[in-house]
Design a protein around this nucleic acid. Structure first.
Lengths: 218, 218
DNA sequence: ATTCAATAAAATTTCAAGATTTTAAAAAAA
DNA sequence: TTTTTTTAAAATCTTGAAATTTTATTGAAT
C-alpha cells in the first residue's frame, strides 16, 4: 500500500511518517527501506535516512548500525513498560501542575476537556469512529498535555510527549474493542481526572490517571 | 583547539563528540559546524550531520531546521530542570529496584559502590582530580545505573541515561568547587544511598538521592 | 539431509558537489 | 544616526552515485 506523493520536503516527510507510525501505518517490526520510501516521497535516500534517524531518537523507529530502520516492534512487555512509564510521568506532571497551575491553567484544562468530551460523546452515540478519529486523537493529546502543562519542567513535558506517542503506537498495533463501550468508559475516566485536577486533589488525580491507563497492563 | 584525528568511523565519532559534549569540550551554545568537524575527523559533512542528528535526539546538541547544530545551551533554569528530573527518575528507579531486585542486584550495587568509593577516597586524599576524572566518571555512572538496574523498565532506564548525560553536561559547564571538600561530601552521600538501598528502605533511599543532588538547585 | 563456505544480490553508509537557505556586511534611504 | 534594502559570503540541505556491509542464494563438503 505504497501511495506516491508529490514533492514533499523534509518536515512534511517527518510529519507524515510520524503520523503513519502512530496510526498503524506500518506493521510493527516492518523494515523501513530508504530506497522504497525514497520513491514514495520523491526525494533522495539520504533525506529519508535523515528523517528516520530523527524518528529513531523519539522511539518510534528502531535503528541498528548497518542494519537499517524498522517500525518499532510491539510486545506485551513493551506495552506494559510504556503504559507504566506514561502513568509515572503523567502523575508527576499532574501533581506539579496542581501545585503550580494558576487560573489560566484551570481554564485551559477545562476547555480542552470540553472539546474532548464533546467528541467522545458523539462517537459513543453515533459510533462513526473512522470519521472522528483524527479529531479525537488531537483532542485527547491536548487534554493530557494541558493537564501537565503547568508542571514547569520542559524536560518532563517533552519526555511525556515522546512516551505518549510510543504509547499510541503500541496500543493501536494491538487493536482491541474501540466500540462505543470503550468511549463510554473513557468519558468517565477523563471526567474523573479533570475533577480531581480542578479540586487540586493530587492523590485522587494520581488514582484517576492510573484508572485511565490500567486496561493497558493486560 | 581543533585537534586533527586520523580516519575515525561513525560510532567512534559519535563516542568522541558525546564525550566532548559532557566534559565541557565545547562552550555551551557554540555552533557545531559540519564543515569544521568534517576536517577534524577526516570524513564527509554528511557523516557529521548524521552523528549530530543522533546527539540532538539525546539532548546534548540543539538543532534547528536550516540553522544547524549547537552544543546545548546552559542556564540556571536548565540545570534546575535537569536536576529535578534526574532526581525523579532515579528515585523511582531506585524504589522499583528495591522492590524487585534480587541478591545479584545487591551484589552488583555493592561492587559498584566499592569501586566508586575507592576512587573517591583516593581523590579526596591525593587531590589529583585530573588523572582520576575519567575513572571517576565511569564509576559514578556505573553506581547510579546499577542502583536503578533492577527497576524492570527499559524506558525508565534509557531515559535516565539521557538525563544523566545532560546533567553532566550542564554541571561541568558551571564549574564549581570540585576540591577535596566536594569529594568528602559525595563519599558520604553515595554511602547513604547504598545503605538505604541494601536496607530496602525506599523512603530513606529517596531522601538520600535528593540529598545527593540538592546542591545543583542553586 | 545438514552444515558450512562461496558467491550474488540487496541494502546501508559514505562521499563530493550542486542547490537552497541563512547569516553577515555594505550601501542606500529615512 | 538609525533603519531598511541590497549584495556577498558562509553554512546547511539535498542529490546521485560509489563503496562498504549485510542478507540471501547457490553449491560443496561432512
Amino acid at each position: 500500500m505504497t501511495v506516491s506523493i508529490e514533492k514533499t520536503d523534509t518536515p512534511e516527510i517527518y510529519r507524515d511518517l510520524h503520523q503513519r507510525l502512530i496510526t498503524a501505518g506500518f506493521t510493527p517490526g516492518e523494515k523501513l527501506k530508504a530506497e522504497e520510501l525514497r520513491v514514495t516521497y520523491g526525494c533522495s535516500a539520504n533525506t529519508i535516512r535523515d528523517v528516520l534517524l530523527r524518528l529513531s531518537t523519539v522511539g518510534l523507529v528502531s535503528f541498528e548500525e548497518q542494519r537499517g530502520f524498522r517500525a518499532q516492534e510491539t510486545s506485551p512487555e513493551k506495552r506494559h513498560d510504556v503504559a507504566r512509564f506514561r502513568i509515572l510521568l503523567e502523575q508527576e506532571g499532574a501533581s506539579l501542575s496542581i501545585r503550580n497551575g494558576d487560573i489560566m491553567w484551570e481554564a485551559q484544562l477545562s476547555a480542552a476537556h470540553h472539546k474532548l468530551s464533546h467528541i467522545e460523546t458523539t462517537i459513543a452515540k453515533n459510533g462513526e469512529l473512522e470519521a472522528y478519529l483524527p479529531l479525537w486523537s488531537a483532542a485527547e493529546w491536548e487534554f493530557h498535555d494541558t493537564l501537565i502543562s503547568a508542571c514547569q519542567s520542559p524536560l518532563l513535558r517533552g519526555t511525556y510527549r515522546n512516551i505518549y506517542d510510543q504509547f499510541r503506537q503500541q496500543m493501536v498495533a494491538q487493536e482491541r474493542d474501540f466500540g462505543s463501550n470503550y468511549f463510554h468508559a473513557i468519558i468517565t475516566e477523563h471526567q474523573a481526572i479533570l475533577d480531581a485536577a480542578l479540586d487540586r486533589d493530587e492523590e485522587r488525580c494520581r488514582k484517576a490517571i492510573h484508572e485511565h491507563m490500567k486496561r493497558n497492563f493486560i
